[in-house]
């Protein structure tokens, strides 16, 4: 049953993404000032939102583990961090491509770029810490603490960019600006692609979660076998 659900979710995500790509490339017109390159934005911003949501959930799942001490939360936190990082990479890479065309440089030490990169590094550190601790209980406990620190730190890195002079374009979504800066058709497409990426993230999370749970099962069986011999 669960298997079929996963296949169904996967199929839905693929169809949705294909449909979105079709609209992005063939239906929507070029942007007035930027031309064709603005299309990376449909992956840039939704990728960032998906990654940020994953960071947030990783913090919540880790706190849940520390409160309940149920393995489920630890597996979920590990899985969602791993899922979040590729979306963060999508955000950084599309941003760099856009920067090369519009700014003429691949990378600039703009605070928003810097903070996105630092956040990715922090969560890569989280995954490294998990790898380094052999004992499952200690791994779950210590990495949960690290995830909570990581999230607090990500907020600080994000906030510090608002105080720093920034050359990153300002907010365009109508909920931040009150409307008028973005064509409704384009904003609608952004929402579509955000949902498609969230669907994909959900699918990846379900797969990674199952792997984590099975690995834990194998580990405990191995320990049991060793204790008999």
């Amino acid at each position: 049953m669960r298997e079929k659900l996963l296949y169904g979710l996967g199929l839905a995500a693929i169809l949705y993404l294909v449909r979105n790509l079709y609209v992005i490339f063939l239906v929507l017109p070029d942007e007035l000032a930027q031309g064709a390159i603005y299309r990376v934005f449909y992956f840039h911003l939704p990728g960032y939102f998906t990654a940020a949501l994953c960071y947030l959930l990783a913090g919540i799942f880790s706190a849940m583990y520390l409160i309940t001490r149920k393995w489920k939360w630890d597996s979920l936190a590990a899985a969602i961090t791993e899922v979040g990082l590729p979306f963060a990479a999508m955000n950084l890479i599309t941003g760099m491509i856009w920067g090369r065309i519009i700014w003429g440089i691949w990378w600039t030490w703009d605070p928003r770029l810097t903070s996105a990169l630092i956040s990715a590094l922090i969560y890569a550190g989280y995954l490294m810490l998990r790898q380094a601790i052999p004992d499952p209980t200690e791994r779950a406990k210590n990495s949960a603490v690290m995830a909570i620190f990581a999230f607090a730190s990500v907020i600080f890195t994000y906030k510090s960019n608002e105080w720093f002079r920034t050359q990153h374009p300002g907010p365009v979504l109508s909920i931040r600006t009150g409307g008028g800066t973005i064509d409704p058709q384009m904003e609608w497409m952004l929402a579509h692609n955000l949902f498609a990426l969230l669907l994909l993230a959900g699918l990846l999370l379900a797969i990674r979660w199952r792997q984590e749970e099975r690995q834990r099962e194998i580990e405990s069986l191995r320990r049991e076998a060793l204790s008999f011999s």
Binding site: I118, I122, A132, E138, F149, S153, T157, S160
Partner: peptide, 23 residues
């Protein structure tokens, strides 16, 4: 405290702490 029991703690500590210390 988090890395005290690790074999690679001298390596892990800076890798984990420096990104968080940037602000």
């Amino acid at each position: 405290a988090l890395t005290v029991n690790l074999h690679m703690r001298e390596l892990m500590l800076p890798v984990l702490v420096y990104p968080m210390l940037i602000p």
